[in-house]
């Protein structure tokens, strides 16, 4: 039975009405989930939908329920697609999956293209950092995600995050990585001040993880699979990591000057940007990245070398983050 037939059978049962699936097509979208677009004809109406299914190997072992709850939490508050159904067991499609509404007419820019937003970079940047601030403005206790996710004490946010990603490196490292290990030690020696408040952290808020219309408008914020509760500066630091601006040193994320991006975020979130805290989270971002790429390299090998996205992640981005980390470590010591 094809995937389309299985999906059709599932939706017919789920909606308790005959459903036809057409135009099922897998689309590129990273290695953490398999992503398919399709149309469902139900009760005479065509519904444009997205299927997100766990892959045999993925970038990180994430909680798909929290991802689904993140969509539920921010649909209607931010440009976030409507989640439809989550199947955590996923037996009918062989692996866990969820279905959400589809936003057509947009494109996701590759972080490795030059000037990905062209003349609309300013407008995209204002929307991008404004939406991140809007996410950070919400008290998690008001949200479905807040009821399900662990909420750390503000003073522990840094430790929880660093322990998590350091343990990933410990588990998946296949060749000694002195640069990231030196960074982890440095981060432990000098923790950041605690956040004013804990907030929902998207976890992978960056260039490439949203759809835009090519005219300066953001249509959909995607890829919430690493959503959790923590220090909101974690998202801000990740969004402005040099990896995502691809050698554009004048603008963060290839969009805006750094100071302007931070100001927009602070105004929309209602939260201050503590310089020392942000510096810690920026260094942490490259550690988190290196952990993700380390896992990707292992999964590329364990999966029989068949997913080239894992190869790029485990190879190019890992080497690039080593450069970023080394440069930052030297700068912190006044060596560059």
């Amino acid at each position: 039975m094809t995937l389309a037939e299985r999906l059709e059978r599932y939706l017919t049962r789920y909606w308790d009405t005959p459903t036809e699936v057409s135009n099922l097509s897998r689309i590129p979208g990273g290695a953490s989930r398999e992503t398919y677009r399709f149309d469902a004809l139900v009760k005479g109406q065509t519904r444009p939908l997205i299927l997100r299914r766990d892959p045999p190997g993925s970038l990180s072992d994430t909680d798909r329920r929290l991802e689904f709850l993140a969509f539920q939490s921010f649909h209607g508050r931010a440009p976030v697609p409507e989640p439809i159904v989550l199947e955590a067991e996923g037996t009918e499609l062989e692996r866990p999956f969820f279905i959400m509404s589809r936003v057509d007419g947009g494109a996701a820019a590759s972080p490795f293209t030059v000037d990905p937003y062209g003349e609309h970079a300013q407008a995209i940047g204002e929307a991008f950092f404004g939406a991140l601030g809007a996410i950070a403005a919400v008290d998690p206790s008001e949200l479905p995600l807040g009821a399900a996710a662990v909420s750390p004490d503000p003073a522990d946010c840094w430790r929880v995050a660093l322990d998590e990603w350091a343990s990933v490196i410990e588990a998946d490292e296949q060749h000694p990585q002195p640069i990231v290990r030196a960074t982890i030690r440095r981060l432990r020696r000098a923790p950041p001040p605690p956040p004013v408040a804990v907030r929902v952290v998207h976890g992978d808020y960056r260039t490439g993880n949203f759809l835009h219309d090519g005219q300066g408008k953001i249509l959909a914020l995607l890829d919430w699979e690493m959503a959790h509760i923590g220090d909101p500066l974690e998202d801000l630091a990740w969004a402005i990591d040099p990896l995502w601006s691809h050698y554009d040193t004048a603008r963060v994320a290839g969009m805006l000057p750094r100071a302007e991006a931070l100001d927009i975020w602070s105004r929309t979130s209602g939260l201050p940007v503590d310089a020392a805290a942000l510096a810690w989270w920026e260094l942490f971002s490259a550690v988190k990245g290196q952990a993700i790429w380390t896992s990707a390299a292992r999964e590329y090998r364990d999966g029989g070398f068949k997913d080239p996205v894992l190869a790029i992640s485990g190879w190019y981005t890992a080497r690039r983050h080593d450069e970023i980390l080394a440069e930052r470590l030297m700068r912190l010591e006044g060596l560059s």
Binding site: T113, V114, P116, R319, R320, E323, E327
Partner: peptide, 26 residues
């Protein structure tokens, strides 16, 4: 010696770098 090692990290990362060419956007 700490600073010497940090400088070496920079050299190691640079020696292993991969240069992503300028790719056209869509």
């Amino acid at each position: 010696r700490d600073h010497a090692i940090l400088r070496l990290y920079g050299q190691m990362a640079h020696a292993r770098r991969l240069d992503m060419p300028p790719l056209p956007g869509r």
